[in-house]
Design a protein around this nucleic acid. Structure first.
Lengths: 268, 268
DNA sequence: CTCCAACTCTGTACGTCGTACAGAGTTAAG
DNA sequence: CTTAACTCTGTACGACGTACAGAGTTGGAG
């Protein structure tokens, strides 16, 4: 039950795995597996049973080989996690892609808000499709093809609206940070419900009596007022997505303010 | 090397630990320890050697008892983590506190930007003082006194500026999300340097040749332009704090835009 | 005082993990 | 045919959280 770390081993070996450049060996028995199958199975296990279920033994078992055989294809577990990460990043749909039978979201220079919102929502979606992504601490970013594609697509979404290169990078980082943090809240909430069998409301009803007994009344006037208001939303249909959408709206407005200031300065 | 989960056990036992309401036992040998000492030692270990070094055996060893003796004071490791979290939250300095010999940051209604910035920077600081906080996945928030204090202080920082109760909660969540996500980047970076012995620059210099060899030139025009610009800042004196400060500025502007819109609607 | 319930503390043990190591079996190049 | 290169296997080590059973210690009840 701990955050797994990536990128512990030899960077070269790790990169070869990410880019799939290992050539077929000339001698020896036909390999039973491929790195791709290992990574694919690992992702399936993580999706189904959580990252803590992804063990070398389990993967080997599922694929019908002995545990140690896994190390023929992958330098170690850290590199496997790197590869899982990069593979998952490939599921992001870039903003330029046309929706079936429709226009792309946010064509043109004026459509940057739609494009950036799309980027944010795709990240949010990805974290919910693969909650284990949030448990992998990327010490160094695994520079696989999909991660690089993703960064390029995100830069493209925010290009040409009057930001400097550095600001573009910062804005993309900020959007990713929003999606990650709010998805983490949402995913942890869902996981807690699954693990404990208690909904948030039920958990709160089990907790409140204790607090009423031990917290001096009036100690938290704002919390007593605001907490329930927030809880009502989180229990409702909108749910944890509200924190994400609120943040997205604020950040888009904040970026817009930066652009406006910049333009006024240039013109003034 | 995995994310540790909190809040697995009996909520009541957990809350009793957080609030320290267990009364002194009437019979039996004098306890050698207290829950507080356990939690304190666990935090020291986590600060010094990382969360992965925090094991029941290690804590017991440090305190001169047998491993199983720890379970006399703490229901399990999950609850211990909860208590570590809440204790650490107590180190947050609320915005109202006077600086020694000076005025408080952002007194008055107009000073909300200073107050909120203070909240954000305190969170950022806390995550750097105790990087292991970022590895503890709070399934359900450990509702100890310090966490509740923190929430109250943060609401107070943003109160009275024209937001609804729900918006106040969302804004506080957003500020926390920003601090957490950007601190995570910064902390992971530092950890990677310590673990691998390579600075970011050295790591990149070891990585770049491989990418030059395997990435078709021109595939990442924006990344090739923006990446180096960003790297220059991150290697420099400002460092990873830049992402945090950029995000903070955008979010404050975004909140300000919301207030303005709200006020214009009321007056119009 | 005695007795016992309540309590603290300990050692042993189980099943998990990643992976080091040594060796057996298989294939193709020389 | 030999041998290097390669895949795959079983065993083993030292970590982890903690269940369980029992030993030792204390204070209140009789």
């Amino acid at each position: 039950m701990t955050t797994e770390y990536t990128g512990a081993g030899d960077p070269r070996r790790s990169l070869e795995l990410l880019w799939g450049v290992r050539e077929r060996p000339r001698r020896g028995p036909r390999p039973k597996l491929t790195p791709e199958r290992l990574v694919g199975r690992a992702i399936e296990i993580a999706d189904a049973d959580g990252l803590e279920a992804v063990s070398i033994r389990r993967i080997a078992d599922d694929l019908g080989v002995s545990p140690m055989s896994v190390y023929t294809y992958v330098p170690g577990k850290a590199e496997l996690l790197d590869a899982m990460l990069d593979r998952a990043m490939g599921e992001i749909v870039p903003p330029g892609d046309k929706a079936p039978g429709g226009r792309a979201a946010g064509d043109g220079a004026a459509g940057w808000r739609d494009r950036v919102a799309h980027v944010a929502r795709e990240n949010w979606r990805l974290y919910h499709a693969h909650p284990w992504l949030l448990q992998v601490a990327t010490a160094r970013p695994p520079l696989g093809p999909h991660l690089l594609d993703k960064y390029e697509d995100e830069l493209r979404a925010i290009e040409g609206i009057g930001l400097t290169d550095l600001e573009m990078d910062s804005a993309v980082t900020l959007i990713n940070a929003l999606a990650e943090s709010t998805a983490r809240i949402s995913v942890n909430r869902a996981r807690a419900e699954r693990r404990t069998g208690l909904t948030d409301r039920e958990w709160w009803e089990a907790t409140a009596p204790f607090l009423e007994e031990h917290v001096p009344p009036g100690r938290y006037p704002l919390g007593d007022r605001v907490g329930p208001a927030a809880a009502e939303v989180y229990d409702g249909a909108v749910g944890p997505e509200h924190a994400f959408e609120f943040g997205l709206a604020r950040i888009l407005d904040g970026i817009e303010a930066l652009i406006t200031t910049r333009r006024d300065q240039a013109e003034g």
